[in-house]
């Protein structure tokens, strides 16, 4: 599973990690803490073609539903069945067992446009008030 430093990040706190020809996608530790106790994950449909920035999944914590956005354009190639069975995995291990889906990116250049770990840390500092 990818380390924090190996992933690229969106401002909406999704991470992407290029794993061969596919990218693994999840939410950051910061996001899971903000969402708090996740009780449900609605995964995207397999084979769905998505654009970067498109809402593709949702997670629900107590009483609140959150949209999850795709960091890349491409086709959904796998979803994590474990998080559907036990959504709390996303809270416990957001960069590991709590990954959400895999995507076959139509362009790897989009990955470079995302923030790296250092940039993401800087971005998080700007969000504190």
């Amino acid at each position: 599973m990818p380390k924090n430093e190996e992933c690229r990040y969106m401002k909406s706190h999704e991470w992407a990690y290029l794993d061969g020809t596919e990218a693994l996608v999840g939410i950051s530790d910061h996001a899971q803490k903000e969402i708090t106790d996740i009780v449900f994950v609605e995964a995207p449909k397999l084979g769905r073609k998505v654009s970067s920035g498109e809402s593709v999944a949702t997670v629900e914590s107590v009483k609140a539903a959150f949209d999850i956005y795709s960091p890349l354009s491409g086709e959904i190639s796998a979803v994590n069945p474990e998080v559907s069975k036990d959504p709390a995995i996303v809270n416990k291990d957001p960069h590991g067992k709590g990954w959400l889906f895999r995507i076959k990116p139509s362009s790897k250049e989009e990955l470079n446009a995302l923030m790296d770990w250092k940039q993401y840390q800087e971005f998080l500092k700007t969000q504190k008030h």
């Binding site: 910061h30 803490k33 903000e34 969402i35 708090t36 914590s61 107590v62 009483k63 609140a64 969000q127 504190k128 008030h129």
Partner: peptide, 8 residues
């Protein structure tokens, strides 16, 4: 919805 405010 200003970050980092939680739903709770």
């Amino acid at each position: 919805w200003k970050e980092p405010i939680t739903p709770t």
